[in-house]
Design a protein around this nucleic acid. Structure first.
Length: 477
RNA sequence: UCCUUCUUAGCUCAGCUGGUUAGAGCACAUGACUGUUAAUCAUGGGGUCCCUGGUUCGAGCCCAGGAGAAGGAGCCA
């Protein structure tokens, strides 16, 4: 007889059939009832032990967190909380768990505390649900692109180019840090380093992704990225996962269509395949909302929010239109913004983005055609000479979830822009080659995977949707 | 990096105007009970009051410095 996973057992009709289960004890009540979980589902299997026929020494070892193997007959439950239960004929202890030392107690814990024991938090209902959803979303991303014929391109983690301008980088070296080689001028001599030059962890796979798009047509990357920004917010990590598709022969509209289709697809996938987990998180959030005053509660619950998001088109407006809406808003006139909107060209603050998404349109918004001055060098310049073909997708509660653009495919325009922005062209000749040899219009975007997981799970801190968060002053586990 | 708030038992938190032996609920242990749903009832153990220094007859409480956390801002995905 082989072991059956609890997810499968709970779907069986109980006919006294013999089964073996293995899992971890969540609670042991009344010396009889084990709530057993094996991670296959958030729901526990109730294992009923006959304490008169079981050794005292075994009963004492059925503690919260212990790994056990139970054999018995599957019957209709005689209690109210569940439909089936396992009438155990034998219980073996596979791994003991000292209840006095085991940090997870059969009670509610704060997310902050669980973050400190991230190695054990997978064993809670909340994090079980979050990380099963995270898995589904990752799988859905690969399935979406694979079904469309995209090539999954593995762009490098270690790179010598820090020219993306996407933020501070982490240096990669194998120098003895107590004895760093210097040259005649007293500068660090990177010629003696492992790669013979200064290297760092990637902040984006985009530039390499563009090289792939110029051969395969459609590619995507899905991997970790690293930013050494001293950001202490609920939306930033030093190590995070990013999805970056890059498509040849795409303009900005094609790019937006793809991003919107991708988001609809993956959220739908989770709604279909993680129904129980999303419902659990939905209930959890509703309980939390009850603690809040009426006016701070959200209009839609998590399920409604996700369904709304997959059934409605995202609002598309230009930066110029967005600024007009903000300028004319009563919020701006009554000076409720901390930063008032007076003129075209300023960068929008998160309070403005939140206003547009959560108050004005009440749905995801795509903002396009930003002023060139506040955007990256590789974005295609518009005919007006002022704006570039950029697009940001803003989500309620999250802010920017996607940032993308149509790329500048004209060599002369691109070089002129790089020179104006002091981007060293000599280091990026490999990138400029795409514009020299068979250049074509193309576009792409970056989707922050953790921000997507945040949205779908309804969690509010990004450190709770990645297994082991890396943030300033924190690199545990 | 900046602003605000916080740091007391394993967890969540009280702690009065600076004053004797620092409390509660939960968790845990022991016993009772035995169809429970975070079982229940009784009993019990458990503290570097974040760290360093200062003020004071006396500091969990006041002051200075430091560390860490949470929320917000900036940067962005």
């Amino acid at each position: 007889m082989t072991r059956v996973k609890i997810k499968e057992i709970l779907s069986l009709s109980p006919q006294g059939q013999e089964v073996i289960v293995k899992g971890w004890v969540r609670t042991f009540r009344n010396n009889q009832f084990i709530a057993l979980n094996d991670g296959s589902t958030n729901n526990n299997l109730q294992v009923v032990v006959d304490f008169n026929a079981t050794e005292e020494t075994i009963l004492k070892r059925i503690t919260t967190g212990a790994a056990i193997c139970a054999t018995g007959k599957l019957i209709a439950s005689q209690g109210k909380g569940q439909t089936v239960e396992l009438n155990a004929t034998s219980v073996q202890i596979i791994g003991d768990s000292d209840a006095e030392k085991y940090p997870l107690q059969p009670k509610k814990h704060s997310l902050e505390f669980l973050r400190e024991i991230a190695h054990l938090r997978f064993r809670t209902n909340t994090f079980g649900a979050v990380f099963r959803i995270r898995h589904s979303l990752a799988y859905a991303v690969h399935k979406f692109f694979n079904d469309k014929g995209f090539v999954y391109l593995h762009t490098p983690i270690i790179t010598a180019s820090d020219a993306e301008g996407a933020g501070e980088t982490f240096a990669v070296t194998n120098f003895d840090l107590n004895n760093i080689p210097k040259n005649d001028k007293g500068e660090i001599d990177f010629k003696q380093d492992f790669f013979g030059k200064h290297t760092n962890l990637t902040v984006s796979g985009q530039l390499e992704g563009e090289l792939g798009a110029m051969a395969f047509g459609d590619i995507y990357t899905f991997g970790p990225t690293f930013r050494a920004e001293n950001s202490n917010t609920t939306r930033h990590l030093a190590e995070f996962w990013m999805i970056e598709p890059e498509m040849a022969f795409y303009d900005l509209n094609d790019n937006m269509d793809l991003a919107e289709e991708l988001l609809h697809y993956v959220i739908n996938y989770a709604l279909e395949h993680n129904k129980e987990d999303i419902e659990f998180l939905n209930t959890r959030l509703l309980d939390e909302e009850k603690q809040k005053p009426q006016n701070e509660r959200s209009e839609l619950n998590l399920l409604e929010k996700l369904q709304f998001c997959v059934t409605n088109k995202f609002e598309r407006i230009t930066y110029t239109q967005a600024i007009d809406i903000l300028k004319e808003s009563s919020h701006n006139k009554k000076k409720k913004f901390q930063y008032l909107i007076n003129e075209w060209g300023v960068d929008m603050q998160s309070e403005h983005e939140r206003y547009l998404v959560e108050k004005h349109f009440k749905k995801p918004v795509i903002i396009t055609d930003y002023p060139a001055a506040i955007k990256s060098f590789y974005m295609r310049q518009n005919e007006d000479g002022k704006t570039v073909r950029a697009m940001d997708i803003l989500f309620p509660g999250i802010g920017e979830i996607v940032g993308g653009s149509q790329r500048e495919e004209r060599l002369d325009k691109l070089e002129a822009r790089m020179n104006a922005m002091n981007i060293p062209t000599e280091e990026l000749q490999w990138y400029l080659d795409t514009r020299r040899f068979g250049t074509c219009e193309h576009a792409g975007f970056g989707l922050g995977f953790e921000r997507l997981v945040l949205f779908v799970t309804g969690m509010t801190n990004i450190r709770d949707v990645i297994p082991f968060p890396r943030t300033p002053k924190n690199c545990e586990f």
